[in-house]
């Protein structure tokens, strides 16, 4: 995502003198800003709390700060600054959390941030985005730069992402995007798990199950009405996210569909200590990879068949 976003950010800084980018000793996103317009980038060093406080001061000066840091350190070390300095006054600061979820794989729990969506969802007025691939990240960046109404958090990947069909990044990122249709089950996924959901749908087709797949990029404000419409008459909705449940895709989907809606199975990470493993293997360990999604659907179908 960083490779795709770097030119977008550079062009945005070139076009708008009020836009200022900030990093915490991580310049990959801003390398082209630095090359083309060095005044458009400020390095705070490895000091996330100050990074966010400075961004808030810049926003109070009428500038438009875009601040990036590694997701675990941004959301955890600077939690109070994000809450009190940015969100309570409703300042239009864009926060980019690089490597949210399990993207840093074998680097271990210090570098995992499966809590970023949960923590940012507790922030007043925070818009929370979890793009599914590089092109979707570009669509999110364009949307947040055009919206100065308040703060935004964007979870970005740490490593190259699977490339999704163009439908995953078509149009604005606020509504869910239907990537595949099918009548038996709707799989709703966000971020990296969208690719997993598509894999699951392929596998389920071989199992004789027609699965629809929807990608949700905007987690707050949650597109509840659109999700209800997408779910339609399907008996089952499965959600998948490499995040803890609270404030995330699963509970938001269940709330949108209500008690009288379809059955909802929420797949999400938990607090188990991770093994030393690749990103893909960690998705499997926490039960949010394609195989886990497929198994959840098949288990539900088998249970219903037995009951019938």
């Amino acid at each position: 995502m960083r490779v795709a976003l770097a030119p977008v950010l550079a062009a945005a800084v070139a076009a708008d003198a009020g836009l200022i980018t900030l990093g915490a000793d991580g310049r990959a996103l801003f390398q082209q800003v630095l090359e083309q317009n060095p005044r458009g980038y400020v390095d705070a060093g490895i000091a996330e709390a100050n990074l966010v406080g400075v961004a808030a001061g810049l926003a109070r000066s009428g500038l438009r700060p875009v601040a990036a840091a590694m997701a675990p350190f941004l959301v955890r070390r600077a939690y109070e600054q994000i809450r009190l300095d940015v969100c309570v006054p409703g300042l239009p600061v864009v926060l980019l959390g690089v490597g949210g979820g399990l993207g840093y794989g074998p680097l271990g729990p210090t570098h995992h941030a499966t809590d970023d969506i949960t923590l940012m969802s507790a922030m007043p007025g925070m818009k929370v985005y979890c793009p599914a691939d590089a092109a979707d990240a570009v669509s999110v960046m364009r949307a947040v730069l055009a919206d100065a109404s308040g703060p935004a958090y964007v979870r970005l990947s740490a490593r190259p992402d699977p490339v999704l069909p163009p439908a995953a990044s078509t149009g604005a990122p606020h509504a869910p995007r239907l990537l595949r249709d099918g009548d038996d089950v709707l799989i709703v996924a966000t971020g990296r798990c969208v690719a997993e959901a598509l894999d699951a749908a392929d596998g389920l087709a071989a199992d004789g199950v027609a699965a629809a797949v929807a990608s949700v990029t905007t987690l707050h404000p949650f597109p509840a009405t659109a999700i209800r419409e997408l779910a339609g008459r399907r008996p089952l909705v499965v959600t998948a996210a490499e995040s803890l449940a609270p404030g995330g895709l699963g509970p938001s989907t269940a709330e949108a569909l209500g008690r009288r809606g379809p059955a909802v199975i929420s797949l999400h990470t938990d607090h188990r200590y991770p093994p030393v493993a690749s990103h893909q293997d960690l998705l499997r360990f926490y039960g949010v990879d394609g195989q886990s999604i497929r198994s959840a659907v098949l288990s539900y179908r088998n249970r219903k068949t037995r009951e019938a």
Partner: peptide, 8 residues
């Protein structure tokens, strides 16, 4: 930090 941002 806030004041640093304001000064910058």
């Amino acid at each position: 930090s806030l004041a640093s941002g304001l000064a910058l």
